[in-house]
């Protein structure tokens, strides 16, 4: 079983405990794949699905699509586009921040500005 398959299975089964609509069959139908294929993905018998399917699965299971993509060994198309526009700068930025604690990284994230109201 792959890390991606384990995470998808664990999340779906946790939801399934309280809501039968999270059965393998119903989740597969909602994200537009065959149940047999989703079963193989969960058991790690095939490579993780495409970016679009991975994002649909993450959203269906209430998970962060970027986290699911990372576990699938992928980077979303929009992030690739951002990095490719300024590759040297973003590559350096990511390397510089690789061991920084979360709170330090959050300091450089753009906040929604609160104004006067």
């Amino acid at each position: 079983m792959t890390r991606f398959g384990e995470a998808a299975t664990a999340t779906r089964q946790r939801l399934r405990e309280t809501d039968r609509r999270y059965s393998l069959r119903q989740v597969a139908r909602r994200i537009g794949v065959e149940p047999s294929y989703l079963s193989k993905v969960e058991r790690g018998q095939v490579a993780p699905p495409s970016e679009a399917t991975t994002v649909r699965l993450a959203r269906e299971l209430g998970q962060d699509p970027d986290v699911f993509l990372a576990m699938a060994g992928k980077v979303s198309r929009d992030l690739q586009d951002i990095i490719c526009k300024r590759p040297a700068l973003f590559a350096e930025l990511i390397r510089q921040l690789k061991d920084a604690p979360d709170h330090a990284i959050l300091h450089i994230v753009r906040e929604v500005r609160d104004g006067d109201w």
Binding site: R14, E17, T18, D19, R30, R56, R59, E60, G62
Partner: peptide
């Protein structure tokens, strides 16, 4: 009918 546990993500029209 959706219940409190685990159901907050699926109040959607089938097909997305």
């Amino acid at each position: 009918t959706l219940r409190a546990a685990g159901a907050t993500r699926v109040r959607e029209m089938p097909g997305g």
